[in-house]
Design a protein around this nucleic acid. Sequence first.
DNA 1: GCCAACGTTGGC
DNA 2: GCCAACGTTGGC
Length: 154
Amino acid sequence: MKSEPSVYSIKDLQRDGKTAWEGVRNYQARNFMRDSMRVGDLVLFYHSNADPSGVAGVAKIASRAYPDAAAFDRESRYFDERSTPEKPLWVLVEVAFVAAFKEILPLEKIKQAKELEGIMVAKRGMRLSIQPVSEAHFKYICRLAGCRMPGNEA
DNA sequence: GCCAACGTTGGC
DNA sequence: GCCAACGTTGGC
């Protein structure tokens, strides 16, 4: 899951413990939240538009998808008049902090790693803010980042 | 700040 | 349903 650190960083999540991932306004990204995410699923937290851009840590899904109330709020930058409480168009999931990498694992490193061949985030023009990651890729990224995780002590 | 790539919108 | 115009994303 991508976030611009100037808006919301892994440190912000560490401080908050948990956050509602509001503001996703892309159908494909929404569908991943709604259809594929389950409580307990692990997430790579990616800093976009950053220096450097890359994976900043690990989070986990803390709720199933439910309507994103920001879409109903005229004052919100995420307001969308097509979405109503009766017929919500956009959803969010809650995301909980797991770990912050000591150092960002830069996109450049991800592109260089043979083991990560085919990973979505490395593809040209890939700007989807929520992307599926294979278990093998996930583990390898954690290893590259030197992150110790339950079930992934390597 | 530039700009390529992409998604969305809306005229036809 | 096509596709040009537009707005946004995000690496650099």
